[in-house]
Amino acid sequence: MGEALLEVRDLTLRFGGITALGGVSLSIAPGETLAVIGPNGSGKTSLFNCVTGLYKPTSGSITLGGESLLGLSPDRVTARGVARTFQNLRLFLHMTVLDNLMLGRHLHFRKNILAAAMRVRDEEVRHRAKVEEIIEFLDLEAWRDSRVAGCAYGVQKRVEIGRALATEPRLLLLDEPVSGLTAEEKEEVSYWIHEIRGRFGVTVLLVEHDLRVASRLAQRMVVMDRGLKLTEGTPEEVQRHPGVIRAYLGDQ
């Protein structure tokens, strides 16, 4: 499988007496799409939050391309090439779609506050071109200048993906990208997630409840239950695993 892009080893996260993650290990190869599935409260989002630096894990290691991500603040993690979307959207509601995407470029800006105060806009123009690529890719042209708060939920979900892409990540973490969407929108988003790998050369780590979408997009799946990794393998293997059936449907 070659060198892993993201390597998570024995990751443990405790909040007081509650163990959110009890020693989870997984790895993703460059260019791969890996889906993490599991019932509610099984620790999927906690895993995401540990990788992106929002939570400080109790023990274990997280490395991206061989370098440790532990102890870095979220913005430093993003600078290393990890971007994410949120399960319950966290967009900048008072900004336009364009500005949301431009904020994704923030860490690539050459920052010069005096130039900004004197309206030197070379950087803005340079990054605008990049952002327009993403707008075109995600079909967001019609909403470019609309305020995000006024956009439909499906559009907001797309803006989140776009904003994450704008940071030019090596690893993209998508937290339930198709939840709450109509059947048609699910199709579109699945298509985009598939396209992202080829067009932007991004490795995707996906948390998804919709098993049909997850098994279509991912080459491998990791199943989590109560903060532990239950099993991993190809979608077919995972779906036949008795532990998975028990976690989802209960004892027979």
């Binding site: 979220p74 913005d75 949120f86 008072h94 900004m95 904020l103 900004a116």
Partner: peptide, 28 residues
Amino acid sequence: NLVSSYVGRALVAVRDSDIAAESMGVNL
């Protein structure tokens, strides 16, 4: 000029959602 530049954008982003701003590479 400032509020229409990357500076203003970062300020508004921190106001609207500090967690998202941080996760998008803005140093809080």
